[in-house]
Structure formats: C-alpha cells, structure tokens
Design a protein around this nucleic acid. Sequence first.
RNA 1: GUGAGCGUAGCUCAGUUGGUUAGAGCACCUGGUUGUGGUCCAGGGGGUCGGGGGUUCAAAUCCCCUCGCUCACCCCA
Length: 421
Amino acid sequence: MKTQSVRGTRDFYPNDMALRNWLFERWRAASRRAGFVEVDGPVLEPLDLYIEKSGPEIAEQLYWLEDKGGRRLALRPEFTPTLARMIAARQAALPTPIRWFNISRCFRYERAQKGRLREFYQWNVDLIGLDEFYADAECISVAVDAIQDMGLTPDDVEVRISDRRLLGALVHKYVGVAEKLIPRVFAILDKRDKVATDTLAAMLNDAGLKNEERQRLERILAFENLSDFDSIGVVREPADTLKHLFDLLADYGIADWCRFDIGVVRGLAYYTGPVWEVYDRKSEFRAIFGGGRYDRLLADVGGRPMPACGFACGDAVLGLLLKARGLGPAAQRAAQYFVASAQEGKRSDVLLVVRHLRRRNRATQFDLKGGSLKRQMKKAADAGAQFVAIVTAEFAESRRVTLRDMDSGEQRDVALEELGA
RNA sequence: GUGAGCGUAGCUCAGUUGGUUAGAGCACCUGGUUGUGGUCCAGGGGGUCGGGGGUUCAAAUCCCCUCGCUCACCCCA
C-alpha cells in the first residue's frame, strides 16, 4: 500500500521539528517574561461552539465528525472559543486580569496555500478583564518581544494598528453611512489592498454609498497619521484613545515597530476596539499575527460580560518568513559526545564510558554495530559530535581515554573522572 | 467552489523539432594497504520518467482520461 500524508498536513523531520521547537520555545519564553501562564484544552470540541460564534457556514470550513453517541464534534479551528468556554466555566473563581497563553494544534478544512495549511500550530495570548488600552499595548509588546527574540527587526516586520471604534465613527458619523451598513463597508475595506481603486469604488457604490460619501471615505483612507483626524470633531474621542495607545507603545520602547494603518480592519465581526496585524514590511507573505479587542465574546458564550483582548500567531507564515531571512535554530547535534573503541568487538569498556557520560547528562552516542575506528569516526561526525572519546586497550589499566576535539582535531588523554565534567 | 502551472533517482533539477542500454549535482554505500571523521580521488547501488489508455516502426517527449502537488481567487477565525 502506497501511503502519503493527508493534504495540508506536514511531516516534521528532525530539521523541521527543530524549527518548530525553536519557535515554541520563543513563544513560551515571551509569554512567560510578561507573566502569562500556559493553558490548553481539548482538540475536540462540540461543533456548535463554532457555529454559534460564526454561523452554520463555518461547518464547511472545519473538520467535524459524528461520534458513536451521535454528537457532532469538531477538530478545533482556533483556540479562542475554548478559552472563552474555560473562562466562563470558572469565571467567579478566577482573579482578574487573567493572563493566559496557549500553543494549540488546530485544523481547518480549507484549500492549502502558501502559508496556509489544514493542520497548523497557533500561539494565543489573551488578557482578560481589563477594559483599558493598557491591555492592548501589553499584548502587542508580547508579540514584538517574541519577534525580536527570533532575530527579526523593525526592517523586517511592522505592527499595523487601527481601531474599530475609530473606523466605525468615521464611517458612520463623518462619512454618513447608515449604522447597519457598517459591517458591509468594513468587509469591503478589508479588501482594500487586494483590489484596484476603481473596483473598490464600484463595490462601495454597490453597497449603496453615494458619490460624496465615497469621496469622503476615500479622503480619510489616505490618512497616514493620527493627527490627520484632528480636524474631524466627531472622532475626537476614539482618535485620542488610539493616540494614548501609541504613546504607551512608545513607553514600552517599541514605537519603531508600530504604525497606524487605517486599512487594518480584520475580517472577523467580533472585534470591538483596537485591531492590529503584523506583516513583513514587503508584504510578501500574509499576516503573521492578528489580534485585537473582543469585549463581547465572553457574554456570547454564556458568561458574564468581560473585556478581553489578545492575539494569535500561526507557525506556517512565520516559518516562511524566518526561512526567507535566514533565521532559525542552529544545526542540530544529535550527540555532544561519541564514544569509539579502538579494539573492535570489545564493548564493555565503551559502555562503561557511555554510562559515565550519560550520568553526567551529556548527549552521548556510540556505534551500536562496532566496526572499524574509521567507521566509528564517520558516525561521530554524522551525529555532529563535538568530542569523541576513544577507548583503547590501555583503558582497563589506566582508566583514561583519548579525547578528540572534532572541530580542531586536537587530541589529549583524559581521566574518566574528568570526562564530561 | 473557480482558474493557472507542475509531476523524471532520497532531494534539487537537465533531457534539443518523438530516435539506441534516461543524465547531472547533492545525499547514500564501498575502497584509497592493520586503530582517526569533515577535504580530495576512484568505484558502486538506486528510476516500469505519477497512473491508465491512445497515436507511431519508435513516446519522458504528442493526444485523452485520471490521481497528486503547487500557486492565485473565494474565504480567512
């Protein structure tokens, strides 16, 4: 039987696994540095958990099955609903603010593309119970911390930040679009970078915007600085709030990573405040991070209303970007030490040295098949060993081995007790 | 769901308008004279050219079908 991996899934060979672990280590470290603790939930959740949040069409875009009891279950496509469910279940007992992070394996039934797979990992950081923009800034700083730790710079990536309330006020109060049309206009604006200017105009026209409304909208979409809004009185409040957020980001020392971008809308309906995305500067890849404030989600899953914000970051796009920039883990060494025998077939002395090194917590290999010293040296090099301890016939008497430094080629005699110290 | 491109060795690919036993680089294995790897030299294994059908004296090459992969659109939590 010829087997191959399922479409949109990946096999993690040693180098791939090394990259994945390297990434996870940085995600965890950045989370913990900011005082977040790790949680996790089941990969299987009731299908309804996602249908309630996103509508019945969502079932087309996720993996789901009926279990033997007739329950409809889904492989989680994201972690946020699980998080909301977990918080709602213990809401009264959890001290706020809640600072949780999670690394989850997620599944989405979509056509795979560059940076988009059917099985992937996602890092989630959520800060729940704070309704001020302090929480948003804290989350953004965690994201930047991780990016920085991976070796990326402000020349490589930027955080593009906007605010749903600002955009909503502009579209409704300044441009004059009816409130019930706002979601549709947001959806069109989200495509701003993808379609030509006249196509966008046609879409807005179809949505029912008059010429003058469109012109006003186009004018504000060209704004690149928050101060551009100073002349528009009706958006004073949300614009000021966003300015405070940027001031705070400057205090965090990450102002050069962040930029106001009115075009950041996010497709999802549940965002209620600041929204942001991390992109590579060249826009070569799709978004690396996406986040924002979602103050209504807890209530939507049946909990007490609680303000919340957070972000998610997938491993696929990040992996592509790191590869393009030559970043990632150094080549893996399977073993630090390799114990070789100069006397073919005599393994007891070799094993004695091996046990000694392993007890000292040194990654140690030896040639299980024995063979010529030449062969053993080659295996040592293949394993990436830094040192080879050669056990000779004199070992039984002297308790000393010949230690070869594989980088320099230098050799010296070392007593067993000093080996691996 | 729509559209485009691509499937030749483990990997990356070459293969002229169809023409003998299908190639290269890397990787792998063996050897370079009785303890020593990475370099170098020599040799070697490995391919029903994604699968099926057709055209032809002759198909990796042309045609049809099929499977798979990739990219873009839709969607994007």
